[in-house]
Design a protein around this nucleic acid. Structure first.
Lengths: 331, 331
DNA sequence: TTGTAGGCGTTATCAC
DNA sequence: GTGATAACGCCTACAA
């Protein structure tokens, strides 16, 4: 059985409180006993039990990052921003993913059983109610992928609608009109599609319903869908993929079908992941400040944990013009 | 104050044990009381306290992955393997990084205070003794980046020495002789350098001490070091970088100095990260089964947690011939 | 300055 | 079937 504070007390010939006092430098302990305790701790190899401590203190010193996935360009970059900020404040953190369905119950354990002192959530798989009740019990929460507000809940987001709208505006400014869209499900997908449609209305672009192709945000799937789409005889002037991975899959598909990008069809992505600038042709896309999103989420959480108010923060995006998109008359 | 099992008992008009029984389906509870309990749980929004539970049960249901970093090609890929295996066994996990120095104390908290039921460690920043004492208290550990053995400690590794040796052998088989090496610190670096030197002796290659250049495993740094190295007038026939990132930095540097790869100088990497095959020229390297390493680590840990013995597992590597390396006479 | 004792929220043993 | 009650390991009034 593991050695407890009691064993140390016994070995040092003092009471448990004296041991506790010395270990936490609370209370005043005589040098003599302090030394005895230290020695006993060393020889017994005593390490305090984190769970007992957490139970007593009603906090455990960890904040949690709960993401759909822990690896990958998007989630990884956000994680990098969070970790960096946490480091600055010397705040410990753990990460857990919650992508697969079964895990929802698991995450609920860390979250619902209050095994963290604060949480940053970047996964739509965790229901709003879970987060709300968590916040109600005093645990601050920051969400990165949805709008949610409450006493201890903050949102850190980009303006998806506006970002996509500006893509539409850009398409219009290039003299392009016939648009197809490769979209995905979820909050981001909805908002981005909405923004694009607004721009379509505003600038008189064309975006038939059957030119809105549902993807799953992944490159390979987008490749397949693009092949199918083009085989049906559809010939848009520009394809707007709602994330960069899909844009790349789309471009690969077009090229494999001997359609030139951007000469025959322009392609625009969204997110501006690292690979976008290295891809050939380099991707015209919307820069989404992933690192900063993570950083800001961490800042906001830390602030709330110090009693600060909850807030809703929108970080700016920017259109990045590269090679995958071309003016109509330049063809 | 949070609602506890006591409140539920009171609201349902039963004892705490009855509540506990129904919630864990242990013991036999009458349908009538069971219903009452369920209702009280629902209306009160009761959620059991994870810390109290863990304290009592002496386990908390989580295994931990402690890596130098959580993002990045190498660590991310290992993590993917681990998660996938954990998913299969419906085992919950958390991840924490332990790269920066300050964090060592933090990680020690999760590890030393036994806040996980098992651990996979992939960071040389955590000392052997910490892992040994952890294992002594009954917590199984799998290490991925060093050889360490004990009752509850397993290692999952590749044979670095042999892998590097085979690179030397390959270099020899190509008719190349004058080798430079871009190495890095730590266990992997040591072993790989050792293997290379063995091959140098065995096959009569040339590897002067000052042609062994210390890198820090990163691309940019390798870029700088390569520039310096070449500016000094050194002209090896082949540069063996002990990981792919450094190999890529090296190639970029050579090309920026108008030295052709592989015509003028061949470059060989190690690890075979995803980018290696996409790089131009594609990288000749040694495939290190990162995903499988993670998967195997998870399997081994799970096995130990079920009472299995500790073990040392070596996964095979394979030389991957691509474009960055050329036969001597082919120049 | 030091020790005793109560309680954090659970589970589990034992009587009833 | 059900309900007291004793742990689990720690912290911290409160006494001494």
């Amino acid at each position: 059985m593991a050695v407890t504070i009691k064993h140390v007390a016994e070995a040092a010939g003092v009471s448990v409180s004296t041991v506790s006092y010395t270990l936490n430098n609370s209370g005043a302990v005589s040098q003599e006993k302090r030394l005895k305790v230290m020695e006993a701790v060393k020889t017994l190899g005593y390490v305090p039990n984190g769970m007992a401590k957490s139970l007593k203190m009603k906090k455990n010193g960890f904040i949690g990052y709960f993401a759909y996935s822990l690896y990958g360009v998007v989630y990884g970059e956000v994680l990098r921003g969070i970790e960096n900020e946490m480091d600055k404040h010397d705040q410990e953190m753990i990460a857990a993913r919650c992508g697969r369905l079964q895990s929802i119950t698991h995450i609920s354990r860390l979250l619902r059983e209050r095994m963290v002192d604060g949480a940053i959530v970047f996964s739509e798989t965790i229901p709003n109610e879970v987060l709300s009740t968590l916040a109600d019990t005093g645990c601050p929460v920051v969400v990165l992928d949805r709008e949610l507000s409450g006493p201890r809940i903050s949102s850190v987001l980009i303006d998806n609608v506006n970002s996509a709208f500006r893509v539409g505006e850009y398409i219009h400014s290039l003299g392009l009109r016939k648009v197809a869209c490769l979209f995905g499900d979820g909050y981001d997908g909805q908002k981005r599609l909405l923004g694009l449609k607004e721009a379509v209305g505003e600038f008189g672009l064309s975006l038939p319903d059957h030119w809105c192709v549902r993807g799953n945000w992944e490159e390979d799937h987008a490749y397949q869908e693009t092949i199918k789409f083009i085989r049906k005889g559809n010939r848009p002037e520009v394809i707007f993929a709602l994330n960069d991975e899909m844009a790349m899959g789309c471009i690969r598909a077009l090229r494999d079908m001997l359609i030139r990008v951007p000469e025959d069809i322009s392609v625009i992505g969204m997110d501006d992941i690292a690979a976008s600038s290295l891809f050939s042709p380099s991707l015209t896309t919307v820069h989404r400040p992933l690192y900063e999103l993570g950083e800001m989420a961490a800042k906001t959480l830390l602030d709330m944990m110090n009693g600060g108010p909850s807030s809703k923060i929108i970080l700016p995006t920017a259109l990045v013009q590269r090679e995958s998109c071309i003016k109509h008359w330049a063809i």
